[in-house]
């Protein structure tokens, strides 16, 4: 029974590797973020300009393809690549805005509930239970029928769902932090509740919030795509990946690229977000593995 020295070195090297930043997912996300900001400038064509003479051109590498329309065109001759690039705005932009709005509300209410306890806690937590039991799709359908469809609507609907997840998690964290000795010691030193929340509680829930936030982005992207697919998401003609998949549905056999590429885009985005989220979680807080 003996493990040689170079084998030992190999084991250390593999332990080091296991904790490294997931390069490909991060690269994809960085490219997408650049795309979200600069889509208008770098997209090869306008995502809205129709040209019926160029309709249903297949991707460039297929017979009949055109190099200037790399991923082909749709039914009315719009460039698929440009629409995908612009569509990232709807997908990622809506998701990030939702996480920001819903996250902020959730964190604040969660901290209040956890620290104050008693009736305040009960009221907030019943609200959380309530909003977690609303079917998202139904809520979106109702809201779209009473208001003009817009990206803001989608953000509102998704925030109404997502805040509760943050609130419940933050409250749990606060409850356990409140029992920690350093909070008691801060009280012994004479700290006010406001100071304890700001200096001792909030900084300690940040990690959890960042981890969960990252992992939730993927979920929100999927939700947004589902809403768009059902036609209650970001309204046309703004391209959204979900509605692009829906539009291409009828032509799956003849023009499969219409649905396939937006589908792959959703898949890549969500997968990358999840890889990144897992990595952040393992870095910051391996305790959160079950989330």
């Amino acid at each position: 029974m003996k493990i040689a020295i170079d084998e030992q070195n190999r084991l250390v090297a593999s332990a080091r590797r296991s904790g490294r930043l997931p390069v490909i997912p991060v690269a994809i996300l960085v490219l997408l973020l650049i795309d979200v900001i600069f889509a208008g400038v770098i997209a090869p064509h306008s995502p809205y300009a129709t040209d019926l003479s160029k309709r249903l051109i297949p991707p460039a590498w297929l017979p009949g393809g055109d190099v200037s329309y790399l991923l082909g065109t749709d039914l009315v001759g719009r460039d698929l690549l440009s629409r995908l690039m612009t569509g990232a705005r709807a997908s990622l932009g809506v998701a990030l805005a939702t996480i920001f709005v819903g996250g902020t509300v959730g964190i604040v209410l969660g901290m209040v509930a956890g620290y104050a306890g008693g009736r305040t806690d009960s009221v907030i937590m019943r609200l959380v239970d309530g909003s977690l039991s609303i079917p998202v799709i139904l809520l979106a359908l109702v809201l779209v029928s009473v208001r003009e469809p817009s990206a803001w609507n989608v953000i509102l609907v998704l925030s109404l769902v997502i805040w509760a997840r943050f609130a419940r998690l933050v409250r749990g964290e606060v409850l356990s932090l409140r029992e920690r000795a350093f909070v008691a010691l801060a009280q012994v030193a004479g700290s006010s509740s406001a100071r304890i929340i700001a200096r001792h509680i909030f900084p300690n829930i940040l990690n959890t919030v960042i981890v969960v936030g990252t992992l939730q982005v993927g979920w929100v992207v999927l939700l947004e795509a589902s809403l768009s697919f059902l036609g209650v998401g970001v309204p046309p003609p703004i391209p959204a990946w979900g509605s692009m998949v829906a539009d291409g549905r009828a032509h799956m056999l003849s023009a499969w690229w219409l649905s396939l590429f937006p589908g792959i885009a959703i898949l890549l985005l969500v997968l990358s977000l999840n890889f990144l989220g897992d990595w952040i979680r393992d870095r910051l807080d391996p305790r959160l593995r079950q989330v």
């Binding site: 000795a181 801060a186 900084p203």
Partner: peptide
């Protein structure tokens, strides 16, 4: 609060990790 201070058992939970 100035006169009476405290030290607790667990040195890990006694110090706020982010300070």
């Amino acid at each position: 609060r100035n006169t009476v201070q405290a030290v607790f058992q667990d040195p890990y939970s006694s110090l706020s990790p982010r300070m």
